[in-house]
Amino acid sequence: MTAVLVLNADLGPLHRVSLKHAIRMLCRQVAEIHDSEPDRLIGVYPMPKVVRLVAYVVTRWRHGRGPAWSRTGVLARDGRRCAYCGKPGTTIDHVLPRSRGGSNSWLNTVAACGRCNQRKGDRTPAEAGMPLRTAPWVPSWSEFTAR
């Protein structure tokens, strides 16, 4: 199922939703199609790629701290690339292992391939001799919605 970008009434990006959720928004008339795939229909609606809300939604909370930590968010932040070797990353690795007091936070987790994650094990990158190619960071909302 494809993701559909949701724009605020002022055309600012808000988030992505499933195609099913976007169709529900169109049926309830809280959104309208901003961009769609040509020649593809779902019932009476063209296949939406981008929908725009009819009424403006205040998003003050987005100007404060960034998005909450999640496994999906870490993979998206790192471009689904292993932080150790650069190959496709499918797992999450804790830079400071949880058994040593590490936490699930943006600054302590990176995307990793299964091989590197297994090789690093319960050690820090320095102990394993596996330097990080990029340091983990806390993404902002604008970086998160742009992907």
Score class of each variant (00 low, 15 high):
Leu5Phe: 08
Ala3Ser: 12
Ser103Cys: 06
Met130Ser: 06
Met25Gln: 12
Trp106Arg: 02
Tyr45Val: 13
Glu32His: 12
Val50Phe: 03
Arg16His: 14
Thr2Lys: 15
Cys116Phe: 03
Thr91Asn: 06
Ala9Ser: 14
Gln118Leu: 15
Tyr56Cys: 11
Asn8Thr: 11
Gly12Trp: 04
Leu53Asp: 03
Val74Arg: 02
Gly43Tyr: 01
Asn117Asp: 04
Lys120Ile: 09
Arg28Trp: 05
His94Leu: 02
Val51Pro: 00
Lys120Asp: 03
Glu143Arg: 15
Ala83Ile: 02
Asn104Tyr: 04
Ile23Arg: 11
Lys49Leu: 13
Met1Gln: 10
Lys49Gln: 11
Gly121Thr: 04
Val6Pro: 11
Leu132Tyr: 08
Ile92Trp: 00
Gly79Arg: 06
Gly12Met: 09
Arg52Phe: 04
Val57Thr: 14
Pro67Leu: 08
Arg119Met: 13
Val58Asp: 12
Phe144Ala: 11
Ala3Gln: 14
Gly101Asp: 01
Trp106His: 04
Thr59Leu: 13
Pro67Val: 06
Ser36Glu: 07
Ala68Ser: 15
Leu53His: 04
His63Trp: 09
Pro46Gln: 09
Arg28Ser: 10
Met1Phe: 09
Leu75Phe: 01
Arg65Asn: 12
Ala146Trp: 05
Pro48Lys: 10
Tyr84Arg: 00
Ile92Lys: 00
Gly101Lys: 01
Ile42Trp: 02
Arg16Tyr: 13
Ser105Ile: 02
Lys49Arg: 14
His21Pro: 02
Ala111Tyr: 00
Pro125Ile: 04
Asp10Gly: 07
Ala111Asn: 02
Tyr84Lys: 02
Val17Gln: 06
Ser140Trp: 10
His34Val: 01
Glu127Phe: 05
Lys120Cys: 06
Glu127Pro: 07
His15Asn: 14
Thr59Ser: 14
Gly79Pro: 10
Arg28Asp: 11
Gly64Asn: 14
Ser70Gly: 09
Ala9Trp: 09
Leu132Val: 11
Asp35Arg: 13
Ala128Ser: 07
Gly114Cys: 08
Ala126Lys: 15
Gly89Asp: 00
Ser140Gly: 15
Asn108Trp: 01
Trp141Lys: 08
Ser18Glu: 07
